[in-house]
């Protein structure tokens, strides 16, 4: 009991005015704003796919981009909530990425069903995954750096969600940059690696976000 009294006395002496962390909505807005800017700059440097006018009248392509963008926004919000010990007392919202993820999977499945006859496969394969991984490096570093300033009690999940958010930025960039109509290729080399990235995030979260 004496030890606790001593500790309290010591800690209270350190009580200087503290600037509270920003609200998670504001935090996620900062992340999505920075990531969107990064996406725009990357697209400006690498170029928008030349057939974008035709692509944006394809309903399944539009649905894919919209749900992927929703996944990006909601994972950013969820990661921001997971940065707080009590999830800012918005537990349901922290687990909200399930909704856009399910929608996204449904869209991909329906797009794959609608791809008859199947569009020709591009000649490249793993290059797409590598490009997405390279593109996501900067958003990943930024998000993890930011997350480390808070106090996540769900560090594994926060790591995984943060990585999925960064991956969706990379995936959005590639879909808007690369001329490719093959949904089979997109599933195999763009979106399936998401699972691995999610698992890697669990490990990275434990490594970098434990406090």
């Amino acid at each position: 009991m004496n030890d606790i009294e001593q500790l309290i006395a010591g800690l209270s002496k350190e009580a200087q005015p503290v600037r509270p962390a920003p609200h998670p909505y504001k935090l996620s807005l900062q992340w999505t704003g920075a990531a969107t800017l990064y996406l725009i700059v990357t697209l400006a440097l690498t170029g928008l796919r030349p057939d974008w006018r035709e692509s944006f009248v394809e309903p399944w392509f539009v649905a894919e981009i919209v749900t992927l963008f929703a996944l990006f926004i909601v994972t950013a919000l969820s990661a921001a909530l997971l940065a707080f010990p009590d999830l800012h007392q918005k537990r349901l919202l922290a687990f909200a990425p399930v909704v856009p993820a399910v929608l996204f999977l449904a869209v991909i499945f329906l797009a794959w069903r609608a791809d008859t006859p199947p569009a020709p496969l591009p000649e490249h394969s793993i290059e797409c995954t590598c490009s997405i991984l390279l593109t996501m490096l900067l958003p990943t570093a930024w998000t993890f750096y930011s997350l480390r300033r808070y106090a996540s009690t769900h560090y594994r999940l926060a790591g995984s969600i943060a990585l999925l958010c960064a991956f969706s930025v990379g995936a959005l960039w590639l879909r808007l940059h690369e001329v490719n109509d093959s949904i089979a290729h997109v599933v195999e080399w763009h979106y399936l690696p998401m699972l691995g990235v999610g698992l890697l995030g669990l490990w990275l979260g434990r490594l970098l976000l434990k406090w």
Binding site: P20, A21, H23, Y150
Partner: peptide, 18 residues
């Protein structure tokens, strides 16, 4: 004691509104 230290370390994540 460990919890009190953690509360001290994470006090900036509490905004006084909740």
């Amino acid at each position: 004691q460990e919890i009190l230290l953690s509360i001290h370390k994470a006090r900036h994540t509490y905004d006084g509104q909740r």
